[in-house]
């Protein structure tokens, strides 16, 4: 029985099929290879524009400029880094901004998201767009507005303060207030973004939890702290880590608003990196700073995971 069937198979009136298979085997594109081929452009670009710079800057961080070009100096750049006063100042600035700005921003984002998620609010779409708008606004345009608003002599903020009898504040010219301004502008810009993430998290909390709590007699505030916050924990953690990374890489805002001044009060670690690389041509030193930032981000993210008690 088996012999005739195999003969019949060979004599099947649809011979192109085995032929096609043979053709396919010879061609480079196979079903197995196709996905890789489709991925290839992305991988090539990733290697050229991400992997290559990462490795090259790692090598650069062990080099310095000499008269004849770049020479390897071992750990010299890193040693210099840990003796550099300006490096510590910019690191301290970055952490001060992080410590004050992150909780304020996330707190506001949670409150705003909860309010905008509540049933009684009208024009929800309008408010959501309004709060999110700063995240998609061109920062250069926005910072021109802020420079005008915050100007010491003719800015509207000081004008309003003077109406209630307060002295003019050097929002951008005083080292302390410049930091405050930077925190305010960063918060203005990124609160809406985090609000949207948290809003998505809120909408995933099952409503029966709130119903059960209402039956047990918990008021809205109690519900917020005992249901909303614990349920939101992973979402808040995500927002916190993304924002921490963002703050450690904070560059645009201080660059456009204060250019790091006055007296380096708003020079963030990334700005210091930029200056060393692109203004002083000290690419080796700049790369060393970049690697320290990478290590810091990794450490902070690890600590946040541990602290939030997230397990796999």
């Amino acid at each position: 029985m088996s012999i005739p069937s195999s003969v019949q198979y060979n004599e099947d009136p649809s011979p192109p099929q085995p032929k096609m298979n043979a053709k396919k085997k010879r061609s480079f594109i196979t079903v197995k290879r196709a996905p890789y081929l489709f991925l290839l452009p992305a991988i090539v670009l990733f290697i050229i524009f991400t992997v290559y710079p990462i490795i090259y800057s790692f090598l650069l961080s062990f080099q310095t400029n000499a008269e004849a070009g770049r020479v390897f100096v071992g750990l010299d750049n890193y040693i210099r880094l840990f003796q550099d006063r300006l490096f510590y100042e910019s690191l301290a600035n970055t952490f001060i901004i992080l410590i004050f700005q992150l909780p304020i921003m996330l707190g506001l984002a949670v409150v705003l998201a909860t309010i905008l998620n509540a049933g009684f609010i009208k024009l929800k779409g309008f408010f959501r767009v309004s709060f999110f708008a700063p995240a998609v606004t061109s920062l250069v345009a926005a910072s021109i507005i802020f420079l005008l608003l915050l100007n010491r002599d003719y800015g509207i903020v000081n004008y309003l303060l003077s109406m209630i009898g307060m002295d003019a504040i050097g929002w951008l010219s005083d080292p302390f207030w410049a930091k405050v301004s930077l925190i305010l502008v960063t918060t203005w810009r990124w609160t809406g973004y985090n609000m949207v993430i948290i809003l998505a998290g809120l909408q995933n909390i099952p409503s029966n939890l709130y119903e059960a709590a209402s039956i047990d007699g918990a008021n809205k505030i109690r519900q917020f702290f005992s249901i909303t916050i614990p349920q939101l924990k992973p979402v808040i953690l995500f927002a916190a880590i993304v924002s921490t990374i963002g703050t450690l890489q904070l560059f645009d805002e201080p660059y456009t608003l204060t250019n790091g001044g006055p007296i380096n009060a708003t020079t963030t670690i990334t700005m210091y990196l930029y200056r060393n690389g692109f203004e002083y041509f000290d690419f080796g030193y700049g790369s060393a700073i970049a690697y320290v930032i990478v290590i810091l981000i990794a450490l902070l993210s690890f600590i946040q995971f541990k602290w939030a008690g997230v397990t796999k």
């Binding site: 300006l86 005083d174 080292p175 001044g261 006055p262 007296i263 380096n264 200056r275 203004e279 002083y280 000290d282």
Partner: peptide, 20 residues
């Protein structure tokens, strides 16, 4: 070749003198 760096550092210190 270190004008840019020197200028920034000098500037910061003079502002420290004037402001602080």
């Amino acid at each position: 070749s270190d004008y840019a760096r020197a200028n920034d550092i000098v500037n910061d210190e003079i502002v420290s003198m004037l402001l602080n």
